[in-house]
């Protein structure tokens, strides 16, 4: 009885301490989320903020999923924005982490300097990064074009953010430049936890450099990589700022992604109802992906490691 009472007290105490957090989450997350869901079934427009919209059922969802542009938006979001940029970010992050952890940099006394330089892009706010890159890539007077023209590599300035052939690689470059350091630093921290004797043992057993990496280093990095991959995908899938600030989702709607579609429909076309439907669809896709990812990859790997 006494034990139960103590447990009850403990639970009450835990609830009491967690209540502010629950309150904040319910007030600032669940309520807006539910309101957003309600809006998605209306034809509410920005000019109707005072009067509200009419109930239209699944009309907004049907319009989004059957629109000619939706495939383009989905492809851009999944392939260019997420798959390409996350893959590059993880690959380059791993490469930089291995380089920073290498004995070569230490012997040249470049470790600290390299780590400092690596942090510069990460410390640069995304807005500043995009503006700086846009300036560098300007067709008239931009340093990149000036250099390419001066060296004779190109004969005519390239409109990096307006040409269909270069606009996506440009956005991905800006994103990867700005966000890779976080991955590199996180992986570097994991690399430094690998005991040296494991590598030495593998080396004594005759393992090649690649085999040491494949069978010793990589398994140690997998839990961190799994979490970084999941976080990167969620964060990138939702990301709005790089595309919007670089191209305003253009030329036309060529670089439109789901996040910019939400913004454009709500705050440019003023269609709050439709925009909410796109937002809800995004949330469902991400939730499904998160659950699947944890089930198939993340959780099992982390459990293996912990176990």
């Amino acid at each position: 009885m006494k034990t139960y009472s103590a447990q009850a007290q403990e639970r009450f105490s835990a609830f009491f301490m967690l209540f502010p957090t629950f309150f904040v989450i319910i007030s600032f997350y669940f309520y807006p989320a539910l309101y957003n869901l309600e809006l998605s079934f209306t034809d509410m427009e920005f000019t109707q903020l005072r009067t509200g919209g009419d109930w239209v059922g699944f009309e907004n969802y049907i319009e989004f999923f059957t629109s000619n542009d939706s495939f383009n938006v989905a492809f851009n979001t999944v392939f260019w924005l997420t798959a390409v940029s996350v893959t590059l970010r993880l690959f380059l992050g791993l490469l930089f982490a291995l380089l920073l952890n290498s004995k070569m940099l230490s012997s040249l006394k470049l470790s600290t300097l390299s780590r400092l330089f690596l942090l510069v892009p990460w410390a640069t706010p995304p807005v500043v990064s995009v503006i700086a890159w846009r300036w560098m890539l300007e067709p008239i007077g931009g340093p990149v074009n000036e250099f390419l023209l001066y060296t004779g590599i190109i004969s005519e300035a390239i409109s990096f953010t307006a040409d269909l052939a270069t606009v996506w690689p440009t956005i991905v470059t800006i994103m990867v430049w700005n966000t890779t350091p976080l991955v590199a630093v996180s992986l570097l921290a994991s690399l430094q936890t690998i005991p040296d004797d494991q590598i030495e043992a593998a080396s004594l057993d005759g393992a090649t450099r690649w085999q040491q990496f494949r069978f010793v280093t990589l398994p140690y990095l997998m839990p961190t990589l799994s979490v970084l991959c999941l976080m990167s995908i969620i964060w990138t899938f939702n990301n709005f700022i790089y595309v919007w600030l670089t191209t305003l989702a253009g030329p036309g709607t060529y670089t439109n992604v789901m996040a910019t579609e939400v913004y454009m429909k709500a705050f440019v076309d003023l269609r709050l109802g439709y925009s909410s439907a796109v937002g809800v669809s995004m949330a469902i896709i991400l939730a499904a992906f998160g659950a699947l990812y944890f089930r198939v990859v993340g959780l099992s790997r982390m459990q293996d490691k912990v176990g």
Partner: peptide
């Protein structure tokens, strides 16, 4: 039709057509 929306629809489709993203017919 809200004039702002007319303008946006027109401008986006125009840019899509002249950039080659869509054919002028589709736009």
């Amino acid at each position: 039709a809200p004039i702002g929306q007319i303008r946006n629809v027109l401008a986006r489709s125009f840019a899509a057509a002249i950039s080659g993203q869509k054919s002028p017919e589709d736009a």
